[in-house]
């Protein structure tokens, strides 16, 4: 029937398909290929099966990096989500102030990741950096190259500064979609500020927060450039996160097999956590639907 003419549309997605193939599928397959072989040179290679995977999972350095990674991601989420909501709540809703604040808040998002690292590296220097200098003047022996606590705190502070605006922006748009009548009804019901937040604003924010948390989790789990520029992973390996361990292994030591296996494990962890998170949320919504029926 006339339906056939629609099929021409399939050709239109072909370029996209090729692009995805080159950018994602082929590289991924290459990685899979490396992860099960030991490659000496172009002609000499052995099949190793799950060998590399076992080795990687048992490597104490990587286990430590993984633990550190989780600690980092959870900490920044725990700070950025409430803070982002808080900022969104106090942002002006209309007028020129709204635009001005919006631009100001968005600013950190526009800065490239490695530049963020450089900015903070200078900012925290004890001699010329405003923060480093001030802290030392105040009598605190602030030093991110020697003190792991300082290094950690600084990286978290940096990430919070860089990414809280994303959560704030998402929440701001979520808050804007709440009709005035809800606020009016709450005033008439004599609801406290907290009750308004708890029963009107927060429920309407759930959807954007799901997106925000997912994005921030994936982002923070892959963090690389900023700590690399700021601390180089130190002092010691106290701020060496997963991606940096991986890079060191693949580029620095040319251990392609193990790093391929590690990459896949890394990828699967992110996939798994995101999936668990996503299904949990979807199930919550399904429950609501079931109740309706």
């Amino acid at each position: 029937m006339n339906k056939i003419q629609n099929n021409r549309a399939w050709w239109l997605i072909l370029p996209m398909l090729l692009l995805v193939a080159f950018s994602a599928i082929i590289p991924l397959m290459t990685v899979v290929n490396y992860s099960v072989q030991d490659v000496f040179d172009a002609n000499t290679r052995f099949f190793t099966g799950t060998e590399w995977f076992k080795e990687m999972l048992n490597d104490p350095a990587l286990q430590a990096a993984l633990l550190r990674q989780f600690a980092f991601s959870l900490t920044v989420l725990a700070i950025e989500v409430p803070l982002g909501i808080g900022i969104a709540l106090i942002m002006p809703k209309r007028g020129w102030q709204a635009s001005a604040v919006l631009i100001l808040v968005t600013m950190p998002l526009l800065i490239p990741w490695n530049v963020v690292g450089s900015i903070w590296q200078i900012f925290t220097r004890g001699d010329i950096g405003l923060m480093g200098w001030s802290l030392r003047e105040l009598g605190y022996g602030y030093n991110i190259t020697a003190n792991p606590v300082d290094a950690w705190a600084t990286i978290i502070l940096m990430d919070v500064w860089h990414w809280t605006p994303l959560i704030a922006l998402l929440c701001f748009s979520g808050l804007r979609s709440i009709p005035d009548a809800y606020y009016q009804a709450a005033r008439i019901d004599r609801a406290s500020r907290w009750a308004v937040f708890r029963y009107i604003q927060l429920p309407k924010l759930t959807n954007v927060l799901v997106i925000g948390v997912l994005l921030r989790f994936m982002h923070s789990f892959m963090i690389y450039a900023e700590p690399f520029v700021l601390t180089g992973g130190g002092p010691g390996s106290s701020t060496t996160f997963l991606s940096q361990s991986l890079t060191t292994m693949a580029i620095g030591q040319q251990d392609l097999g193990p790093s391929a296996a590690f990459s896949l494990i890394y990828f699967l962890i992110i996939l798994l956590v995101s999936w668990v998170f996503y299904t949990a949320i979807m199930n919550m919504q399904k429950d609501k639907k079931n109740e309706e029926a």
Binding site: P179, A181, Q184, A185, R187, I188, R190, I200
Partner: peptide, 17 residues
């Protein structure tokens, strides 16, 4: 303000928590 006036209001589009 409305909260001190002892009135209630029902809006055009239903408002429930």
């Amino acid at each position: 303000p409305p909260e001190l006036r002892n009135i209630a209001q029902v809006f055009q589009f239903p408002v429930v928590y």
